[in-house]
């Protein structure tokens, strides 16, 4: 009796959450999905006529190349983010409580600053004869300005810069939960420091690493404004195409189809993550 009541109660309390989720998450996704099978109208909006054309268009070389290029950039970005973020998160978790708090603050500061302003900071740094060139030339590493702005490396740096905090936080939260006596047990059983890392620490912090990978890889397919601002129009990503189709070409159905494909890739990634780690929440998000 009491149970029934309380379940009714909790249903009543959860109802707003369900309504919110349906209204602002499920419906837009369904709308986008439906949109992706419709036709672009001659002038404005869409024609309610079923077609696979949008998906077939994606297979056209220019768009397919964009997908592949985006994918490559995302892989490169993710790799760099792992190389920088994993050790960072790992050692941060091993700091004393006082220093952990300070590092956390430093990590959080950028989140409170407008991301465009931070990107313009990079423009200033990368500009020909900007601070970076000056320093490199002063140190004699380069002889003349590198003209890094509006190049591929500039985009990569911008991406890594924007995404590495997510990896750090994800790794940090799983390393912090590590039971270090397991590492001691492994050393005790004959493992060198590296073997202990490989066979115990790494597998046990894998949930953090994998969620860091998802949190890096997924956005890096779509962070069009970084490619725009730091790459000029030399680097075109799926995100740029979606934005362009939506805002300039007004081809909503095609933009929707591109977005659906991106979402599908994301879902596959998250599904794989769950399969590997048997964990349902992404580590480090909460």
């Amino acid at each position: 009796m009491k149970n029934k009541n309380s379940s009714k109660m909790s249903l009543a309390m959860l109802a707003p959450i369900y309504i919110f989720t349906i209204a602002f998450v499920a419906l837009p996704i369904i709308y986008m999905f439906v949109l992706s099978f419709l036709k672009q109208a001659e002038s404005w909006g869409v024609v309610y006529e079923f077609t696979f054309k949008n998906y077939l268009d994606i297979l056209e070389p220019i768009y397919l190349t964009t997908f592949i290029e985006s994918f490559k950039l995302a892989v490169l970005t993710t790799l760099l983010v792992i190389i920088i973020g994993y050790p960072f998160g790992y050692f941060m978790a091993k700091l004393s409580a006082k220093w952990r708090g300070r590092m956390m603050l430093l990590l959080m500061v950028p989140f409170w600053t407008n991301s465009l302003i931070r990107l313009y900071g990079w423009i200033i740094i990368f500009r020909a004869n900007g601070p970076l060139d000056k320093i490199l030339m002063f140190l004699g590493i380069t002889q003349e300005p590198l003209k890094l702005l509006y190049t591929y490396p500039a985009v990569v740096v911008g991406m890594v810069y924007a995404l590495v905090p997510f990896m750090i936080l994800a790794v940090y939260s799983s390393v912090e939960k590590m039971d270090w006596s397991l590492v001691e047990a492994s050393r005790d059983l004959g493992a060198s420091a590296f073997e202990a890392f490989r066979t115990v620490t790494l597998p046990l912090t894998l949930p953090g690493l994998l969620s860091g990978i998802i949190l890096t890889f997924v956005p890096s397919m779509g962070l069009f404004f970084i490619a725009d601002i730091l790459g000029g129009n030399k680097v075109v990503l799926v995100g740029n195409v979606i934005q362009e189709q939506l805002m300039k070409a007004h081809n909503w159905p095609f933009a929707a189809a591109l977005a659906v494909i991106l979402m599908l890739m994301t879902s596959i990634l998250i599904y794989t993550y769950r399969k590997i780690t048997k964990v349902n929440e992404l580590e480090g998000i909460l």
Partner: peptide
């Protein structure tokens, strides 16, 4: 520790 022929049964089993 890995160079010593000693093994431990930990208090929390580990």
């Amino acid at each position: 520790p890995n160079k010593r022929n000693v093994n431990t049964v930990f208090q929390n089993y580990a």
